[in-house]
Design a protein around this nucleic acid. Structure first.
Length: 162
DNA sequence: GCCAACGTTGGC
DNA sequence: GCCAACGTTGGC
């Protein structure tokens, strides 16, 4: 932590992960506490990833968890580049239609900044009037990569500090 | 495990 | 280009 959580990043995002597949604990254990965010196979999510800049900050959300919750914060350390798992027949996210010469799918690298001591549950987030418009809380929202507004980011960080 | 919401596919 | 069928997501 270098005291920059609130001020430096120009853009904020939220990434979903099922902790049974990859949790914030797994990120904490990863080499350099860094991982490649591969496997995104949704165009809107990919387009958001392509907008990410080094230094952008990320809410790490545990979906399909008990309870579903924001578990911590990460940052972008490498901007979008081709997702090699799309070309790997043995990979769960193999995409036979993706052409290595003109890749369809991208990934970014992210690094852990902070694991919350108490994850912020979806239930708690829903109770915050200032988060009403948040994409995560929209009915039927399934996007695994979402933009987060600066004012939403501030509310969430303040909650995490309590 | 259920199922609503959503994105994608493919027949026409 | 429409849209029904299908597969996936993800809260509950």
């Amino acid at each position: 932590m270098r005291g920059q959580l609130l001020s430096d990043a120009s853009h904020y995002w939220l990434l979903k992960s099922e902790p049974s597949a990859f949790s914030i604990g797994d990120l904490a254990q990863a080499s350099g506490q860094t991982t490649g965010w591969d496997g995104v196979r949704n165009y809107q999510a990919r387009n958001y990833m392509r907008q990410m800049k080094v230094g952008d900050q990320i809410l790490f959300y545990h979906s399909n968890a008990d309870p579903p919750a924001i578990a911590g914060i990460a940052e972008v350390v490498r901007e979008a580049y081709p997702d090699h798992t799309a070309f790997d027949k043995k990979d769960k996210h193999f995409d036979p239609k993706s052409n290595p010469a003109k890749p369809t799918w991208d990934m970014v690298d992210i690094k852990l900044l902070l694991k919350f001591s108490h994850a912020l549950s979806l239930d708690k987030l829903r109770k915050q009037p200032g988060l009403k418009r948040m994409e995560l809380l929209r009915r039927g929202s399934r996007l695994s990569v979402q933009p987060v507004r600066p004012q939403e980011w501030r509310i969430i960080l303040a909650l995490a500090r309590k």
